[in-house]
Design a protein around this nucleic acid. Sequence first.
DNA 1: TTTCCAAATGAACGAGCGTTCAGTTAAATG
DNA 2: CATTTAACTGAACGCTCGTTCATTTGGAAA
Lengths: 198, 198
Amino acid sequence: MADMARKQGSHSDITGPRVRDAALRLIARHGYAAVSMRQIAAEVGVQAGALYNYTPDKQSLLFDLMQGHMQELLAASRSADLAGDALARLAGFTRFHIAFHLPRPDQVFVSYMELRNLSDANFAVIEGMRRAYEDVLEDILRDGEAEGVFAMADTRVTTRALIAMLTGVSNWYRPDGQFDTETITTIYWDLVRKSVTA
Amino acid sequence: MADMARKQGSHSDITGPRVRDAALRLIARHGYAAVSMRQIAAEVGVQAGALYNYTPDKQSLLFDLMQGHMQELLAASRSADLAGDALARLAGFTRFHIAFHLPRPDQVFVSYMELRNLSDANFAVIEGMRRAYEDVLEDILRDGEAEGVFAMADTRVTTRALIAMLTGVSNWYRPDGQFDTETITTIYWDLVRKSVTA
DNA sequence: TTTCCAAATGAACGAGCGTTCAGTTAAATG
DNA sequence: CATTTAACTGAACGCTCGTTCATTTGGAAA
């Protein structure tokens, strides 16, 4: 009679996500170093000490946010990179990248801006996941070169250039602005396709 | 006997730049909020209080670094955007952007990562300068469309996409690495040219 | 040599930091 | 109803923060 439904009805399964949500929003807005545990706690509506029921320390809170984002990104990208020739897969990747990033501006912001606030060990983990994501695109570009459909001076540099271009959309895109996701995708796919086709 | 050679031989004209250099390097490495005035002072070799001979406060120190960078960038870009048809000017802009940014990784990093740590008034100033720089490229793209040499879905979005791509090189480029500036320029110019030509 | 003053020191200010923990609370269990 | 215990409080720990300022220092000016 120990393990079954142990904390049903308790708040911990509600407060936990709320801590993460508050931390994500505040860190995206003000930066990891500028946000205090007391600010996060106030946003959730608890005292600072209560946060330590949900994270061992502030650094782990940042790492969990970034690792969670990268895990979602990797899992989703591997599902998306499936069918067809290199050109079709590049179109799919472009569409996926924009569709994944645009609805997650805070996650994107934190994951790209707070790398230097990770401990060395945590940085290595996130960096490895970023590499793995770059490899998804690089494989497509290499296959397209082999097919004779793509031509570029250096695959690795081109990979990074394209990802920088695509991710940059999060820096200015506003959902209530001039463009919807579909229009953005069309514009960027046009740039991507032309830049790498032979 | 008042105004002539007033502080010749004093340290202020040496310490001032050293404060800015130390602040730039430390902020690029650890972030504005994570760097203390005492750390900057220690790097310079003075006590924290002495910094206030050179800046009214920490916020002004950050703003001066960013404003100085943007002023240099704008002045240099206007000198570089001179001759020829749109294609030649786009080549010149691409070359200029890379040549200007690659030797200044710390300035680039700070100017793009610390925007959220500026006061509202200071942010507006820097944002305006960034807009002005984007306009240099956008003018080239518009002229190229008028010439019938370029074709793109949206000039403003394309401007931002290209600048994001070009600036992204600072995120991974290392001067002791595989590529020299000339090679990088060739690779990126290839991508830029193909992405916008009709 | 004496005077002068820019430059820098070093101590202090109130405030906020991450984190810990003994004690309180309130909902689920028996 | 009595008991249990996860969740949370509130105070405290030692420490660092940005900034101020009376005082000291040392090289240039007279």
